[in-house]
Each structure stands twice: as C-alpha cells, then as structure tokens.
C-alpha cells in the first residue's frame, strides 16, 4: 500500500508517541486543565473519559497547539508540537457539532485537505497527493462515496472520512473527539475495527468518548479526566463504578454498573 508516511525520521522510533508533562490551561479565570501528565506508547488506543467540561477538548486543542498552555510541555514522537504539526504527524477528527455539514465540499475534497501541508503555495494536487487520497479512501472503505457531499454521508461515514483525511496526511497520532456521538451501533463497530487496524500498524489513537460500554473493545488503556488526570489504567479498571463516580458524580455510576 502506498501510504505516504512522509519520512519523519527525526523522532527516534523508541520515543513515545505522545508525552504531556505538567500541562495547565486557563480560560480567563477558569482552570480547564490542571497539571496534566500523560505518556502514550506507539500503537496504542487510549480512551479519554470524563464529563462535559472535564477538559477533554481542551487537552486535544493543547496537543494540537490551538490553545496555549500556561505551563507544561507537549512532545509528539520526540518532536516539539510545532515541528510535529509541520510534518503532519497529528491528525484530528473533530466532533460533529464543530463541523458545518452544509459546506459544499465532497468527501474527496475533505480528504485532499490532509495533503495541504505537503503541497505548494496554491495547494495544487499532484500525482502523489491523488494516490494518497485514493489509498486513504480505500482504507476506510469510502472510495465509492468519494464524490458525495460530505454532509450527505451518515454519521459513521463522516467520521471515517475525517479519519481518511488523517491517513492521507500521514498522521501517526490520531485525535478523535467524541467519534461515536450520533453514530449507530454498526458504524461504531466499523470505526472500532478500523481504529484497531490502524493501531496494529503502529499508529497511536487518543479518543474521547461518552460510550463507556464500548470502551473495553476499542481501547488498550483509558484516562479518567476531571481537569486533572484522576486515573490512567486499563479500560476495565477505569470503568469500575467507584472510579467513574470520582469523575462523573453519582448519577452515572448507576448506569455504568448496569
């Protein structure tokens, strides 16, 4: 397969995929992340569990550099974030409500946006770009729908299209924000399987999810977040009612214990 992993030899292969150290972020007076430290090894899928406002989206933004931390550092495959971004190592799948689904772009157009970092001033697609996009679409099994408007896809297909954008970009670290929200069971299984395959290839996946039930099938490890890291362990351990109670308060523990 001609996946263009545009040779980033800079970070040594032994470097962890993601190292976050002492990350603290404020929005005005509000403390969004408090001294967060995380290390993810390559090829793992890590679930990020926490209630709304627990700092999951802020953590993603800080890793991608769109939010400036007050303190702390992020290292991606041994590189500082800015250089990692320039190399296209970080791929991002936004949560549904952050995307304008009426935007007149095809699936192909969206996936091609993964290649912009490698293209010239006008982002004119070349042969290698078209091949990378075709391979990425093939990988997520959306080749047939390449010409479809992005908003005309189902919830699960939309997520796969954005994963394809990350693949076309050659991303080694994929960040997915609530990929299972508004996605039916079958699509969820398809996405889970796809992410497991990508992890088996050595890619690292950090995924925030409300879907606690599906987490053990998806993730190798899980983080319980409430502005700080309450726990970083196996999904089963993190999902124990007494642990969830610390992150969510008591209403959700009943559900998790079902």
């Amino acid at each position: 397969m001609t996946f263009t992993r545009t040779g980033h030899a800079a970070g040594a292969a032994s470097d962890p995929a993601l190292v976050v150290r002492g990350l603290t972020v404020h929005y005005g007076d509000v403390l969004a992340l408090d001294d967060v430290s995380i290390t993810l090894q390559r090829g793992t899928i890590c679930g990020l569990v926490g209630m709304n406002g627990s700092g999951k989206s802020t953590l993603f933004k800080a890793i991608m550099g769109s939010v400036k931390p007050d303190r702390g550092t992020v290292t991606i495959e041994g590189l500082p974030p800015k250089r990692a971004r320039k190399r296209g190592i970080v791929g991002y799948v936004p949560q549904s409500e952050d995307v304008d689904w009426s935007f007149p772009l095809s699936v192909y157009d969206v996936v091609m946006m993964g290649r912009y970092g490698f293209q010239n001033f006008t982002r004119h697609p070349r042969h290698a770009d078209r091949e990378a996009v075709a391979a990425a679409l093939d990988r997520v099994e959306l080749s047939d729908l390449a010409g479809r408007r992005i908003g005309a896809l189902s919830g699960g297909q939309r997520k796969r299209a954005f994963v394809a954008r990350g693949l076309a970009q050659g991303a080694e670290v994929l960040l997915l924000d609530e990929p299972f929200a508004g996605v039916d069971r079958r699509s969820e299984a398809t996405i889970t399987e796809l992410l497991r395959e990508l992890a088996a290839d050595g890619r690292t996946v950090l995924v925030s999810s409300h879907d606690l039930e599906g987490l053990p099938r998806l993730a190798d490890e899980a983080i319980l977040l409430l502005r700080r890291v309450l726990m970083h362990s196996t999904p089963d351990e993190v999902l124990r009612p007494e642990n969830l109670a610390r992150a969510f308060g008591f209403d959700l523990t009943g559900r998790a214990g079902e």
């Binding site: 550099g65 791929g91 991002y92 935007f103 772009l105 946006m113 993964g114």
Partner: peptide, 9 residues
C-alpha cells in the same frame, strides 16, 4: 471549513 485542521497540519 476547518481552521483546527489547518492548525494541525
């Protein structure tokens, strides 16, 4: 369409 992705790459 997606300024966050622009930043990410």
């Amino acid at each position: 369409f997606d300024p966050t992705h622009a930043n990410a790459i």
